[in-house]
Design a protein around this nucleic acid. Structure first.
Lengths: 188, 188
DNA sequence: CTTGACACGTGACGC
DNA sequence: TGCGTCACGTGTCAA
């Protein structure tokens, strides 16, 4: 038999501590239910259940637009089943590609909807910028923002975003090929 | 005063019902903690707290996609092969390298003498720039010029050149590794 | 009258 | 030893 006697003050403290803990949990339940979209039952079990479903849903979507394999570390509780790698989500269409990485000029292009991101790394030569922008204009790409960096006095680094004219569904390959041929001719 | 007498069978049923309800809740707590990445405390309050933070984080990252109605056209898939990751720095003493090209964040670093060129493409998240610049300062890299582009409202494109402090022989690998680990921790 | 959900006080366990 | 967390049984209120 154990002696379970406690002093009155001790028990009182225990009561208050537990009360505070419960209040904290209730508060968190409230906070969680506040950010869950479209739930009608504020019931604890429902909040937890909806949170689980919602997190899974967001994760599945997230995993897709990360381009598969987001983080190498996926902690799971020992003994718990692994989430099946269901991959049935359709959406987004980001295309990206870059030229061979060892030769200059290096050209990278990303396309998402009507937005285009272009990065060029090439030898610093007079008139090259004019040539590039002229070529972009021919492709009906209107430059939104651009930045030029000089690297080690000998190289040029150009980054820019552009808007694609409607009706022009250019592919990443199209843009890269066009830029590369004109730059190859110029940088001879 | 109320009469709080209950029949024995009734009380027994009440006990079992409450017990079942509790078991259901603990089950859901376990299920929720199983899908939350990188939590260490399986404590109820911690599970709820981490769930709240995690959901908020995922929501913020995906909020931009909701308000975006891309063009219905532009459905052409090039289907071109991936660029070979040939990495043979020919001649000179220029070192360059980039991380795997399909996962975000993508980090590219070039080093030539005391000059460093860094290009980062990652998800647009609050505070990420501060984190990057803080990390560069720790590496004794003094930024010469920097430029930030927003791509499609959801991605961030950062290009910068920096000067290496004398006596610091940083390799491309050092810089990439440092940046990648800190960004992985931040972009969970 | 039943069913379900909740907060409460309490004993127990681990650090 | 105290402190934090948990599960339990119980009373109560509402659907």
């Amino acid at each position: 038999m154990k002696n379970t006697k406690r002093s009155s003050s001790h028990s009182q403290h225990h009561i208050m501590a537990e009360r505070k803990r419960r209040e904290k949990l209730t508060q968190q339940f409230l906070a969680l239910s506040a950010i869950l979209p479209g739930l009608k039952k504020t019931d604890k079990a429902s909040v937890l259940g909806d949170a689980i479903k919602y997190v899974k849903q967001l994760q599945e979507r997230q995993r897709f637009l990360e381009g598969q394999i987001p983080n190498p570390e996926m902690r799971s509780i020992p003994g718990s089943p692994n989430p099946k790698d269901d991959n049935s989500s359709g959406g987004r269409n980001e295309m990206r590609q870059s030229t061979s990485s060892s030769t200059l000029p290096e050209i990278q292009v990303r396309v998402l909807a009507t937005q285009v991101l272009i990065r060029i790394h090439c030898h610093k030569m007079k008139g090259i910028l004019i040539k590039v922008f002229t070529e972009l204009e021919k492709l009906q790409l209107s430059v939104v923002s651009a930045n030029v960096l000089t690297f080690a006095e000998t190289a040029l680094d150009l980054s820019l975003t552009a808007e694609m004219e409607q009706g022009w569904n250019l592919t990443v390959d199209d843009i890269i090929r066009t830029l590369r041929t004109t730059m190859d001719l110029y940088l001879r």
